[in-house]
Design a protein around this nucleic acid. Structure first.
Length: 460
RNA sequence: GGCCGGAUGGCAGAGUGGUGAUGCAGCGGACUGCAAAUCCGCGUACGUCGGUUCGAUUCCGGCUCCGGCCUCCA
């Protein structure tokens, strides 16, 4: 709220409470939707390791005019659209290694709570009814604009939408609006209608986390008006000093330096990306920039993340037979990375430490040191949601999307060619040996001769 | 116009009042039949102009440029 980094102290150390704004479900999730999910997933993992219990709530907005519009365009029912989109969302986020939140409330399942809240706001003089609408009276909240650092004059000067005539004040916003028979609606003291966009988060956060909780997250663009309005509603209803105490906002994703838009044709869905790279690569690419910074999504970024994971997994494979240790020594090795994450979720800084540990592991010949480094690396991986796969399977492309244009070779065929090449090398027939290697490479398989034999790697 | 961010080596990207981020790319070396992987070595990077300071990329101010938001938006 101060706009500065502050030391985090939870309200209740035995139950840290986190709320993040989730998706409006009318279409496939795009890379911009994925960033907050991955970022706040890391935050939740970090908090879980630090505190005994964390309650993470991420809502689903399933009543919204964009959904209504989609239904009108396609003729498909709203339930069908939202149900299918939620399924896609869960699938996509799972492939990005994001753990599900503890509670994922749907707006349409909480309409009575919203109506209660709106009634309270009216009773307290923070809201009024006008022409079937219920509006929040911004002038009743002196602190309005504090989060977004905006004065009332700024908001009026900046208004570029025609002000509805029933508003007492141009800055007032809708809590409830009337629905005709073609639109989804619920009975209420103000007639059949549907909630405004902001009230669901106020109602659901207080239901699952209490009127005051620790952290509220979401995209940078939600600061105004969405989060400003959530604060106004919740504080208006529950009193001064309530609602979220710490706010985290992630920066936007742009694609090749340009804002994503359908007209530019650079609108990237998570599905599009998963067709080119494993989910873990997408995840690493998202974590390679600090969450508050804007992130420019490029092919190079994805390629770099892929190389990085290959390197990490190769280091783990080298010590595949070593049992990782998670003792004090391992914790000490991982301390620097832990400190980075605890300092405003500095994932790029933590990844730098991870690179350092991986280099140390590659260099290490001491089994005891290897065990500690392996433990520290896996432990940090668990915090970042990375490195949970089998290194050999990773190398052989078990998690790679089927690469178009590359011959499908089964492992047995590759092994047979490796055997043949080995024989050729023994006979000093290097021409034939190199021919096999080049041929495999052309088919997407790269060979690596090591002290313990020849390994093959699937390349993109 | 208002508000909020940002400007770091070829690229990506942290951070710091005084030595090293880290990665990718590049160059040289070790290893290898040759490669690949790995390891070792190699870069006077902090937009600009002032101020504070023994010392500023880091703090303060001006300027330039870039981006976001200003009731659709993750």
């Amino acid at each position: 709220m101060s706009g500065e980094k502050e030391t985090f102290v939870p309200l209740d150390p035995d139950n840290v409470r986190l709320y993040v704004c989730g998706p409006t479900v009318y279409d496939r999730a795009h890379i911009g939707n994925a960033r907050p999910v991955v970022v706040f997933d890391v935050l939740a993992r970090l908090l879980r390791r630090r505190f005994p219990k964390v309650t993470y709530v991420r809502n689903i907005t399933d009543v919204d005019d964009k959904i209504n519009a989609r239904s009108r365009e396609t003729g498909e029912s709203i339930d069908a659209i939202t149900g299918r989109t939620i399924g896609w969302y869960h699938e996509d986020m799972g492939l990005l290694n994001a753990l599900p939140p503890d509670v994922e409330p749907r707006a349409t399942h909480h309409i009575p709570a919203m109506i209660d809240m709106i009634s309270t706001l009216i009773a307290r003089g923070h809201a009024y009814e006008a022409e079937g609408h219920v509006l929040f009276s911004v002038s009743s909240m002196p602190d309005y604009g504090r989060l977004s650092r905006r004065s009332r004059d700024d908001m009026i000067a900046g208004a570029r939408v025609e002000v509805a005539p029933y508003k007492r004040d141009p800055a007032d916003f809708v809590l409830w609006k009337p629905s005709d028979e073609t639109l989804p609606g619920w009975e209420s003291p103000w007639g059949r209608g549907r909630p405004g966009w902001h009230i669901e988060c106020s109602a659901m956060s207080s239901q699952y986390l209490g009127t005051s909780f620790d952290i509220h997250g979401g995209g940078h663009d939600l600061i105004f008006p969405h989060h400003e309005n959530e604060i106004a509603q919740s504080v208006g209803c529950h009193g001064h000093g309530t609602f979220a105490r710490f706010w985290l906002h992630n920066g936007h994703v742009v694609v090749d330096g340009e804002k994503m838009s359908k007209s530019l044709g650079n609108f990237l869905t998570v599905q599009d990306l998963l067709a080119d790279a494993p989910g873990e690569v997408i995840r690493l690419a998202l974590l390679d920039t600090h969450y508050r910074q804007p992130l420019d999504w490029t092919r190079e970024r994805v390629a770099r993340a892929g190389k990085t994971l290959d390197r990490f997994y190769a280091a783990l494979e080298r010590v595949g037979a070593v049992e990782p240790s998670f003792d004090r020594e391992a914790a000490a090795l991982g301390q620097a990375a832990w400190d980075r994450l605890c300092d405003d979720l500095n994932t790029p800084g933590a990844l730098g430490e991870l690179h350092r540990m991986v280099a140390d592991l590659n260099r290490s010949e001491d089994p005891r040191e290897q065990a500690a480094l392996k433990g520290a690396i896996l432990s940090l991986g668990g915090l970042l949601g990375l490195l949970d796969k089998d290194p050999v399977a990773w190398r052989q492309g078990a998690f790679a999307p089927a690469a178009g244009g590359v011959d499908e070779l089964d492992a047995a065929a590759v092994e047979a060619l490796i055997e043949e090449r080995l024989a050729a090398r023994k006979a000093r027939n290097y021409g034939r040996a190199d021919e096999i290697r080049d041929d495999l490479k052309a088919r997407g398989i790269e060979l690596e001769d090591g002290p313990s034999g020849t390994a093959w790697r699937k390349i993109a």
